[in-house]
């Protein structure tokens, strides 16, 4: 049941994009961890650049999207830059379409 909720949350988060890269944060590898205990969701996520003004909106967008999933009672977002995000976290087909160098 918990895994199903996590999968649904993961799908719901695909509506949240990084505005600069233009792809959803799941395929970009921004979401480090999703855990659910009795409907209380905790999402550990990152972004490309600390201090970027988009971060607040990414957090709110993730909270909004996750809160709409049936079975979710509360959402706690943890934004972290440890470890820092690197393009190696991007899904390979997305990385290719973004024209990324095959580094890191």
């Amino acid at each position: 049941m918990t895994n199903q909720v996590i999968d649904r949350i993961r799908d719901a988060l695909r509506v949240v994009i990084d505005p600069e890269l233009g792809y959803n944060i799941i395929d970009l590898g921004f979401v480090y961890d999703i855990s659910v205990i009795d409907g209380a969701v905790r999402i550990v996520m990152t972004a490309t650049t600390p201090g970027c003004p988009a971060i607040r909106f990414l957090e709110e967008g993730v909270a909004n999207a996750a809160a709409r999933v049936p079975g979710v009672r509360s959402v706690d977002i943890v934004m972290t830059f440890d470890p820092p995000w690197t393009p190696s976290r991007i899904e390979p087909e997305v990385r290719a379409s973004l024209g990324f160098a095959a580094v890191n």
């Binding site: 988060l13 509506v15 949240v16 994009i17 505005p19 600069e20 890269l21 233009g22 003004p53 988009a54 607040r56 909106f57 990414l58 709110e60 967008g61 993730v62 909270a63 909004n64 999207a65 996750a66 709409r68």
Partner: peptide, 23 residues
């Protein structure tokens, strides 16, 4: 372009599909 995106689409992110900055 970047700030305009944040103002226009940042508040609705997570609720509906949004364009990219490049759009």
């Amino acid at each position: 372009a970047f700030l305009t995106w944040l103002e226009a689409y940042g508040p609705v992110m997570g609720r509906t599909p949004t364009p990219r900055v490049q759009d």
